[in-house]
Every structure is written in C-alpha cells, then in structure tokens.
C-alpha cells in the first residue's frame, strides 16, 4: 500500500487516482503515526515552501518523514514535495527543509524569451540510469508548473534535467529518497509509467538489464 501524505497542501486526489488507475492500492492519510504501516510514501504538494514546511512541522510530519527516509522505505516527493526534501528553500523567506537531499531550492531566473512560472511540457534529458525512469526514453515531454527549482549539492543525485533558459533539475534520487519536479500524475502515459515504476521500486539504484531504455 502506498501512503499519500496529507499535510494540508494541494491536490492529493490526482495522485491517488493515478495509482488506482494503474491498479495499485494507495491511501491519503493525515496522521503521521500511520506512516510506518505503508510500504512506500508519497509526498505531494502545491503551494509555497515556507507554508508547506510550517504545516509539516506543526502536524508532526517532519521527524516521521526523516524516519521513513532513514528506514530505507521508498519515498517520492512530487513538485513542491520534491523541493521539501532539500536542506533549504528561499520561497517566502529562507526556510529549513527536510534535509534528505543535500542542496537548496531557489527562484528560477530563466533567460528571455523563457517565462516564469515554468508552465507546460518540457523535454527530459536523463543524467543517469535509474529504475524510476526505466522505460522512459530521452527527449520525451513532461508537464511542469513551478517558479522555484532544486539545486542539489551532489550532481550524482540528479536523474534528469530540462532546459528552461538554463538547466533545471527535473528529478533526483538519493538512495531510497526520490523527487520529481514535474507532475507524473498530469503527464499522461509517460507520467503514469513513472508512477508504475515507483509502485514497484525497492528503493535501490539497480537497473535491470532487461528493462527497455
């Protein structure tokens, strides 16, 4: 069972619908104490970094999510949920994040004619092979909608990037903790493929040789 964290930020239904569509059991839960009962944890999110961290802290999620990460359980943050995995964010004031992926989250500064927010479909360039991206070719488009982006300290954590008047990290994985800046649950068939991969992910880095790439 996949647990979708409800901490009062944004649209949780779409992610659950996507897993249900794929035939994977997923439940939205708002009690951090229940986290231990799920096989994998998904952290969604729409809104601002500062508000989201306030909600995670006030509702007792932050220590629980750090425990989940330390336990080796597969964990995925989507959009703002990915950004919260990092050390710090500057949206609405410098705020400490969950600190699960070293790095910071800063406002994008795209060169013209690129606009902000970064809204729409953009092309993924893979930085390395990873089971979460198995079966997804290079140069396929995913749906993005954000104004801040993640800057990891460790380049090895980057799975894929896009170009938006400068390079933008699209997805990361550090051991069992992963993040996607785009919305797989809104990216139609290719997005659902990634969620399917997450549903079967063991939290490791090993890419099976039989997987299409």
């Amino acid at each position: 069972m996949i647990g979708i964290v409800d901490y009062g930020m944004g649209n949780l239904g779409s992610v659950r619908n996507a897993f249900e569509h794929l035939g994977h059991a997923a439940r939205i839960f708002d009690d951090p104490q229940e986290a231990a009962g799920f096989e994998r944890i998904l952290l969604p999110g729409v809104g601002s970094f500062a508000q989201a961290m306030r909600n995670l802290d006030e509702r007792g999620w932050s220590p629980v999510l750090r425990e989940v990460a330390a336990s080796g359980k597969p964990m995925l943050g989507i959009c703002l949920g990915m950004q919260l995995l990092f050390d710090r964010g500057e949206e609405h004031g410098d705020t400490a994040g969950l600190g699960l992926v070293p790095g910071k989250v800063i406002r994008m500064q795209p060169t013209p004619p690129n606009r902000l927010p970064h809204v729409g479909w953009n092309t993924l360039d893979h930085a390395r092979r990873h089971p979460l991206h198995a079966g997804v070719k290079d140069h396929v488009d995913f749906y993005f909608v954000h104004s801040y982006h993640c800057v990891p300290d460790d380049e090895a954590d980057v799975l894929a990037r896009v170009d938006h008047g400068g390079r933008v990290v699209a997805s990361v994985a550090r051991a069992n903790v992963a993040g996607m800046q785009f919305h797989p649950e809104k990216s139609q068939a290719v997005g659902l493929k990634l969620l399917e991969n997450f549903a079967g992910w063991d939290g490791g880095d090993t890419v099976g040789s039989a997987l299409p790439w």
């Binding site: 729409v46 609405h92 927010p117 909608v145 104004s147």
Partner: peptide
C-alpha cells in the same frame, strides 16, 4: 498566489 503559489 501567496496561499497556493503563483503557478496555479
């Protein structure tokens, strides 16, 4: 925009 983010 402050509550839900400018992007939405």
């Amino acid at each position: 925009a402050e509550m839900f983010g400018a992007q939405c």
